[in-house]
Simulated assay, not measured.
Amino acid sequence: MQVVIPMIMNRRSDCPLNVGLEIFGDKWTLLIIRDLMFFNKRYYNEFISSEEGISTNILADRLELLEKQGMVRKEKCLEHKQKILYKLTEKGIDLLPLIIEIGFWVEKNADEELDPNKEVILGPFRENREKGFQQIREKLRKDHLEKEGL
C-alpha cells in the first residue's frame, strides 16, 4: 500500500530525502516538533518564548505547514475559549525517532560541549532506544491524541 503525503507544490524532485528536506529543511519546523514532544509547549506564545527566538511570522507559517502536512492539529482550548491549543498527530509522533537520532548524531559529532539539558530529550533513550521510543510514544499519544476531559 502506498502512502500519499500532501506535498509542497513545485518540489525539486520525488526523491524521499528531497521531499523530507522540503518539509523539514529549516531549523524551525523540527524545533516546534521538539517543543511539542519534550517541553510540553502547546500555545503560540509558549513557542515564541523558546530560547531560539523564532519570529511570529515564521512561527505562524511553520505551524500552518505542520498542520497542512498532518503532523500537528489545533483545537480550541477548553479553559480559554479564545486560545488555540496545538497537539501532535500520530504522524507527528512518528517523527520521534528522527528527532532522537539527530540528537545522538550531534552529540557524537559536536565539536563543543552541548547543553546539559539535552538529557531531557536523549536521556530516556540511552540504555535501550526501543524501550525509550515505546515509553515516550505512549506518553505522547496520551498527551496529544486523547481528548481533554475524557
Rank of each mutant, 00 (worst) to 15 (best):
K87T: 09
R42K: 10
I84N: 06
L66D: 03
L36E: 00
Q69L: 10
E51H: 13
K76I: 08
L63T: 04
N40Y: 07
M71F: 14
R42F: 02
K83C: 12
I54H: 02
D61K: 13
L59R: 02
K41N: 09
N45G: 01
L59G: 01
N57V: 11
E52I: 14
H80N: 14
F39T: 04
E52N: 10
I32Y: 00
L36K: 02
K68P: 01
G53K: 08
G70M: 11
G70L: 08
S50L: 04
I58T: 15
E67I: 12
G70D: 08
K76R: 15
L31D: 12
E67D: 08
L36H: 07
T56V: 14
I58F: 01
R62P: 00
E46N: 03
K27D: 09
R34Q: 05
F38C: 02
L65S: 08
S55A: 08
R73C: 08
Q82K: 14
E64S: 13
L30D: 07
L59P: 01
K74W: 08
L30N: 03
D61G: 03
M37Y: 06
L59N: 04
E75V: 13
L36Y: 04
L30C: 05
N40C: 09
K83S: 08
W28M: 08
M37A: 11
G53P: 05
Y43L: 06
I33E: 01
L66Q: 00
F38N: 07
L66F: 03
A60F: 02
F39V: 04
R73A: 05
E46T: 04
K83A: 10
N57D: 13
I54F: 09
N57F: 09
L78D: 07
W28H: 10
I33R: 01
L59K: 00
R34F: 00
E75M: 13
N40I: 03
I32M: 04
K27M: 11
Y86F: 12
L66M: 09
E51W: 08
L66R: 03
L59Q: 02
E52A: 11
L63N: 05
M71I: 10
G70Q: 10
Q69Y: 09
Q69E: 13
Y86H: 15
Y43V: 05
G53D: 05
K27F: 07
A60L: 03
G53C: 06
Y43S: 05
F39I: 04
E46S: 10
N40V: 00
E67K: 13
N57Q: 13
M71A: 03
K87Y: 01
Q69A: 15
L78Y: 03
M71Y: 07
S49K: 14
S49H: 06
G53S: 12
Q82E: 11
I58E: 07
D61F: 08
K27A: 12
V72F: 03
R62M: 05
H80V: 09
L78H: 06
A60V: 00
C77E: 13
L31M: 11
R62C: 05
L63Y: 04
K41E: 09
E46W: 05
N45A: 04
N45V: 06
E51N: 12
I33W: 00
K87E: 01
E79C: 06
N40G: 10
Y86W: 04
Q82A: 11
